[in-house]
Amino acid sequence: MLGVLNQVLHRRGLLPVRDGAELAQRLAAHPDKVFAYDGLERGVPRNHDRDGQAEEYSAKKKRTA
C-alpha cells in the first residue's frame, strides 16, 4: 500500500525533499523568496507516579535541556 502511495506522490512531484542540497535548489527556483516555518517541539508532561510514568512514557526521545 505504501509503495502505491509513493508512486503516486512521485508522479505528481509531491514527495518530500530529504536532501538539503535538493531543497536549496527547489527553493531557489520557487517564485516566492520568503518562506515561513511554523514548528514547535513541546515536552511531554510526565506523570509523577513512577508506575504511571512507566506505562505512559516510552522515553524514546530524551530531553537534553
Rank of each mutant, 00 (worst) to 15 (best):
M1S: 08
M1I: 05
M1A: 01
M1K: 11
M1P: 11
L2K: 15
L2H: 13
L2Q: 15
L2N: 13
L2P: 14
G3E: 11
V4D: 10
V4H: 03
V4W: 07
V4Q: 13
L5Y: 01
N6V: 12
Q7Y: 01
V8S: 02
V8W: 02
L9V: 04
L9F: 08
L9P: 07
H10D: 12
H10Y: 07
H10W: 00
H10Q: 07
R11N: 12
R11D: 10
R11V: 09
R11P: 12
R12C: 00
R12Q: 07
R12M: 02
G13K: 01
G13V: 06
L14R: 05
L15Q: 05
L15P: 11
L15K: 09
P16E: 01
V17M: 01
V17D: 03
V17I: 02
R18K: 10
R18Y: 01
R18D: 05
D19C: 03
D19G: 09
D19S: 04
D19Y: 05
D19F: 00
G20N: 15
G20W: 03
A21D: 12
L23M: 01
Q25A: 00
Q25W: 09
R26F: 00
R26L: 04
L27H: 06
L27D: 10
L27C: 01
A28E: 14
A28S: 05
A29N: 14
A29W: 05
H30M: 01
P31D: 05
D32P: 08
K33S: 04
K33N: 09
K33H: 08
K33R: 13
V34G: 04
V34A: 02
V34R: 15
V34K: 09
V34Q: 10
F35M: 08
F35C: 10
A36M: 12
Y37C: 10
Y37A: 01
Y37I: 14
G39Y: 07
L40G: 01
L40D: 11
E41W: 11
E41F: 08
E41G: 05
E41L: 05
E41I: 14
E41D: 10
R42G: 14
R42W: 09
G43V: 14
V44L: 03
V44Y: 06
V44W: 06
P45Q: 07
P45A: 00
P45G: 06
P45I: 02
R46G: 06
R46H: 14
N47R: 02
N47L: 07
N47D: 11
H48P: 13
H48M: 12
H48T: 10
H48D: 15
D51P: 15
D51L: 06
D51E: 13
G52I: 00
G52T: 04
Q53N: 15
Q53L: 08
Q53P: 10
A54S: 11
A54G: 12
E55Y: 02
E55N: 12
E55R: 13
E56P: 13
E56I: 15
Y57E: 09
S58W: 00
A59W: 00
A59P: 15
A59N: 11
K60M: 08
K61R: 15
K61C: 03
K62M: 10
R63P: 15
R63E: 05
R63A: 04
R63C: 08
A65F: 07
